[in-house]
Computed example of a mutant assay.
Amino acid sequence: MALSPLAPEAGRVIDAEVITEPSRTYDLFTTGLRSTVDGDDALRQFIRKALLTARTTYLIYDNQYGNEIDTLIGQNVNNALFDAEIVRMIREALIYDDRITSVGNFVITRSADACFITFDVGSVGGGTIKEEVTV
């Protein structure tokens, strides 16, 4: 029998080469849709936009896009819980993108009513992008 799984034929398994598609997108923040960005610049734009967009607020995005940081702001929580939750929320907002391999090295600094968070994002290409968020 040719189609039996018990007797596999030699040469039926083909190794496929993974082709990385360009991540080209419109430049939203500097030129206002008049040019495109690719590579690390497109990834930086995704990070910025995902951290500016509230999750499950806009119907145009699926339930994985955006963040839930707005639910944490104004809550009466201690600093340790705030730090743990903000790290989790930023990581969850970014890690589902297939261009991102890791999100880590969080440094949280407080000044008056503001909270400054710096972190590293590892990309599929092997590079590391350093980002900063102010909450």
Rank of each mutant, 00 (worst) to 15 (best):
D41Y: 14
T30G: 04
I19F: 15
I90A: 08
L59K: 12
E85D: 09
T57W: 14
A2S: 11
E132I: 07
D27N: 14
N105H: 06
V135H: 07
E92Q: 15
Y61T: 08
L51V: 03
I100E: 04
N78T: 10
I100T: 00
D27K: 03
F106D: 13
D70A: 06
R88N: 09
T118F: 04
V37W: 05
L81F: 07
S111H: 14
G66D: 01
A84K: 08
V124G: 08
D120E: 13
V87C: 10
Q64E: 15
L52C: 09
G125W: 00
R88D: 11
E85S: 03
V87D: 09
A16I: 14
S23R: 05
L3P: 00
G74E: 12
D62A: 04
I73E: 11
G66C: 05
R44S: 02
N63R: 10
E9N: 12
F119K: 04
Y96L: 04
T56E: 08
A10T: 09
G127F: 07
M89S: 15
R110V: 10
T56Q: 08
I117E: 02
E92K: 10
P5C: 14
I47G: 00
V103G: 05
D38K: 00
G126L: 11
G122E: 01
D97W: 07
I117M: 01
T118D: 14
D62P: 13
I69K: 01
A93V: 02
G127S: 15
C115E: 02
A84R: 08
R34G: 14
R91V: 06
F119I: 00
F29E: 10
D113V: 10
G122H: 04
V124C: 13
V77L: 11
A7C: 11
L28E: 08
V121Q: 03
R88Y: 14
G74K: 00
R110Y: 15
I19T: 12
G125C: 01
A84L: 11
N79W: 08
A114Y: 11
